[in-house]
Amino acid sequence: MAPEQQHTVGDELARFLRARRTQTSPQSVGLTPGYGVRRTPGLRREELATLAGVSIDYYTRLERGKETRPGPGVVDALARALHLDDDEHHHLRELAVRASRFAPEPPPPPSRTVRPHLKLLLETVRPNPAYIVSRSMDLLAWNPAGLALYAGMDDWPLARRNLARYIVLHPVARELFPDWDVQVRGCVARLRTEAGLNPDAPDLAGLVGELLLKSPDFARLWERYDVIGRKKIQKTVHHPKVGVLTLSSQSMNLEGTPGQRLGVYTAEPGTPDHDAMLLLDLTAPADSARRDAVTAD
Score class of each variant (00 low, 15 high):
residue 155 D to E: 10
residue 264 V to K: 00
residue 184 V to N: 01
residue 237 V to W: 00
residue 200 D to H: 05
residue 220 R to I: 11
residue 147 L to A: 15
residue 156 W to Y: 10
residue 151 A to N: 02
residue 214 K to D: 13
residue 246 T to Y: 00
residue 217 D to I: 10
residue 262 L to C: 12
residue 199 P to L: 02
residue 152 G to W: 05
residue 207 L to V: 12
residue 265 Y to V: 08
residue 173 A to R: 05
residue 233 I to W: 00
residue 206 G to H: 06
residue 219 A to E: 12
residue 175 E to P: 00
residue 150 Y to I: 05
residue 169 L to G: 04
residue 170 H to V: 14
residue 235 K to G: 00
residue 199 P to V: 06
residue 146 G to F: 04
residue 179 D to F: 01
residue 200 D to Y: 03
residue 179 D to T: 08
residue 180 W to R: 03
residue 258 P to E: 06
residue 178 P to I: 09
residue 196 G to S: 09
residue 185 R to T: 10
residue 263 G to S: 05
residue 202 P to W: 08
residue 147 L to W: 01
residue 177 F to T: 10
residue 226 D to F: 03
residue 160 R to A: 10
residue 188 V to W: 04
residue 159 A to Y: 04
residue 157 P to K: 06
residue 255 E to S: 13
residue 240 P to L: 05
residue 257 T to Q: 15
residue 261 R to V: 10
residue 263 G to A: 10
residue 198 N to R: 14
residue 256 G to S: 04
residue 150 Y to C: 06
residue 224 R to A: 08
residue 222 W to E: 14
residue 254 L to G: 15
residue 150 Y to W: 13
residue 182 V to F: 05
residue 150 Y to R: 00
residue 202 P to V: 13
residue 236 T to N: 00
residue 229 G to N: 14
residue 235 K to S: 02
residue 208 V to M: 11
residue 260 Q to R: 06
residue 256 G to K: 03
residue 204 L to P: 14
residue 256 G to F: 06
residue 193 T to K: 11
residue 242 V to Y: 02
residue 228 I to P: 01
residue 150 Y to T: 05
residue 221 L to R: 12
residue 257 T to C: 13
residue 174 R to S: 09
